[in-house]
């Protein structure tokens, strides 16, 4: 009979479970074993067994570490402390495998081995360590070129989309701006500077893939300065070339394909073929009142 029947139920069903991940770590890590026990107790008691906060940190910084203590250290001593370390992620979350291995090895050595990739702000989050490990972790990270992220009443770690690295829609170099802002506001990031948090997020285009409008105080979104410039002749030639069946391969795969296809066919008839991103832009702007009514009309037909 399992010691954790209630949280075991989270492993059933078609989707991956964090319980499965913790159990896999629990084979070799006592913190993870006790974490499962504490979580099971929380489910039974229908309340959290984490105490309110915890005053911990590293010298020279006012944030970057989130303190957590359990209220049942006698029952689960290996999670009596379970602090989180926030690591400032690389711009656009680009890592090479060596970097990922280093971070994971560091965490298995000094903590539970459990991570969030990534936290909501964007940091590489390392979950679960003890107070006496904080300074060694910080020293090790610093020596390998990493830094803590922002937390509490600091500027939080800026984050950005892939931008020019991978995306045709990028209107500016988001990664460069993210890097610049992070360095410009190092003092504010590591020492409490504001009444509470302040977040910068950068998206290269109005798709706003980092959800900067919803999730930041200063949202920087790239946009076109004027109408999209295109070479109509080149686009028409491309479309005639037969390499891409825009109607079936692109428009046909779009969610609202009926109204988009109608629009595309209208444009095609008018011989105003437009590049995909212009269609995409119109799609992002939302349906016009006429189009919205058209959808209802379609249903009634």
């Amino acid at each position: 009979m399992s010691d954790t029947p209630m949280i075991d139920q989270l492993e059933t069903g078609p989707w991956p479970s964090f319980i499965k991940d913790i159990k896999r770590m629990a084979v070799k890590n006592a913190m993870c074993k006790d974490l499962l026990g504490l979580l099971e107790m929380s489910y039974k008691d229908k309340k959290t067994h984490w105490k309110h906060g915890g005053i911990v940190g590293v010298r020279g910084y006012g944030g970057g570490i989130i303190g957590r203590y359990s209220d049942s250290p006698e029952k689960f001593p290996n999670v009596s402390h379970f602090h989180t370390v926030r690591v400032n992620q690389p711009s656009a979350w680009f890592y090479n495998t060596g970097a990922l291995r280093y971070l994971c090895d560091l965490w298995e050595k000094h903590g539970s081995g459990l991570t969030n990739l990534h936290g909501s702000t964007g940091d590489f989050v390392m979950l679960g360590t003890t107070t006496d490990q904080l300074e060694p972790i910080f020293t090790d990270l610093s020596e390998h070129g990493w830094d803590l992220g922002g937390s509490g009443s600091d500027v939080r770690t800026p984050s950005c989309c892939n931008g020019m690295a991978r995306c045709e829609f990028a209107c500016y170099d988001t990664m460069n701006l993210c890097y610049d802002l992070t360095n410009e506001y190092q003092d504010e990031l590591h020492r409490p500077a504001f009444p509470y948090k302040f977040k910068f997020k950068m998206s290269g285009c109005p798709n706003d893939c980092v959800a900067s409008i919803a999730r930041s105080d200063c949202s920087i979104i790239g946009t076109w300065r004027d109408e999209i410039q295109q070479d109509d002749a080149a686009v028409a030639e491309y479309a005639k070339g037969g390499k891409v069946d825009i109607a079936n391969d692109v428009v046909g795969e779009m969610p609202d394909r009926l109204h988009v296809l109608e629009r595309f066919q209208t444009l095609h008839r008018q011989q105003e073929l437009q590049p995909l991103h212009a269609l995409h832009k119109r799609h992002a702007e939302g349906p016009s009142p006429r189009q919205g009514q058209g959808r209802d009309d379609t249903a009634r037909r």
């Binding site: 906060g53 911990v56 010298r59 006012g62 970057g64 989130i66 937390s151 509490g152």
Partner: peptide, 16 residues
Amino acid sequence: RRMLWFLSEESSTIGW
């Protein structure tokens, strides 16, 4: 007031 907050808040600002 802010320094007092740093001595007690849980979102991990610490009041050295």
